[in-house]
Amino acid sequence: MAWIPRLRRPSATPATAVAPTEHETGYVKLMIMFGVPLTDPAQDDAVPPGMIVRGDWERIVTMRPDDYGYPWGTLPRLVLLWLAKQARETQSPVIDLGATPQDFIEALGSPDASTGDILWQAQRLFGASITLGDATVHGRKPMTVRLHVAKDFRFWDGERGQVTLAEHLYQSIAEHPAPIDWEAVKGGRLPAMAIDVYAWLNLRIRYHEITAPERISWNRLSELFAHNLPMDAFRPRFEDAVGHVAPLVPEVAVGITDAGATLSRA
């Protein structure tokens, strides 16, 4: 399968040469939590929105699709996490995708997945336009960053596949540890919503001290994680997501009640 390559192919930049972003949180987790839809916005022949807005008063992520549509579901979340892992390990924004599409699929831990599905989702992810608003830095002064996941990319047009991460994204990856365990998520071992909850709990652990039980209503949880799911469909999926993630984040105990969820130090 041949794909039209992007024109620019810059050389690698060591992580030590990247200027600080001064962010308290990594972009990857925010994009996973708030940016990537759970389901296809164009499913059932619906006309997809021109922009999706997710987040809360501290952090807002908007996503606009390219001509191929929105990335959605588990696969783009896996691609983002794998790219972040590779960037940290190689200390380079230039990520090798392997000699063939199958090499890339196996690296994601999904050898049985459809080649077309993974490549279409990667194409959509790399082409999406993302805006991150963050009010958690510099004494909660709001700031905004606009970026793509990929500065440029090439999908096996007679050469090895390659993607160069956007500068802001690479800086964030280089500077901030990611306590998300790749072995726990690769190959689609967690549903999409469970990956979102996993990213959220990791942010809570790292940047919000939990000194007393914190109660979060179902309406608030729905704003954060439900996307377009009605409440009667969202609640069982959220409870299932917590069940998947709880063993992976032992520092936090998540209780589920009729009123919502309670977070406390384990």
Rank of each mutant, 00 (worst) to 15 (best):
P93V: 02
M63P: 06
G73D: 04
L81A: 12
D66V: 01
G50D: 14
D96C: 09
G50H: 14
R88E: 03
Q86C: 07
V53K: 14
R88G: 02
P93E: 04
G69T: 01
W72C: 01
G98K: 05
Y68P: 00
L75H: 03
D96T: 00
K85S: 10
L83E: 10
I52R: 14
P76C: 08
L80V: 06
R54P: 00
L83K: 02
G98A: 01
V94K: 13
G50S: 12
L83M: 15
I60M: 12
D66W: 08
Y68W: 11
Y70A: 02
W57P: 01
P71K: 09
W57F: 13
M51P: 00
V94Y: 12
D96M: 05
D66F: 10
V94P: 15
L75D: 14
L83D: 12
A84I: 00
L97H: 00
W72Q: 04
P65H: 08
P93C: 04
K85W: 04
M63V: 14
L81Q: 14
R54F: 03
T62P: 02
R88S: 02
V79R: 05
E58I: 07
Y70D: 07
I52W: 03
E89F: 00
I95R: 11
G69D: 04
D56W: 13
M63C: 11
W57T: 13
G55E: 06
W57K: 14
G69M: 10
T100Y: 09
T100C: 03
T62H: 06
M63Y: 03
V61S: 08
R88A: 02
Y68C: 07
Y70E: 05
S92P: 13
Y68S: 11
L97E: 01
E89L: 02
A87E: 07
R77E: 11
I52C: 04
A84E: 15
V53H: 07
E58K: 10
R77C: 09
M51S: 09
Q91R: 06
A87R: 02
W82K: 05
T62I: 07
R59S: 12
S92C: 11
V61E: 06
S92K: 06
L75S: 03
I52F: 07
R64A: 08
L78K: 05
P76S: 10
P76L: 09
Q86E: 13
T74S: 13
W57Q: 12
G73F: 04
E58F: 14
M51C: 07
Q91D: 15
R88L: 00
R59P: 01
W72V: 01
V79C: 14
T62F: 04
Q86R: 13
E89G: 01
K85G: 06
M51G: 00
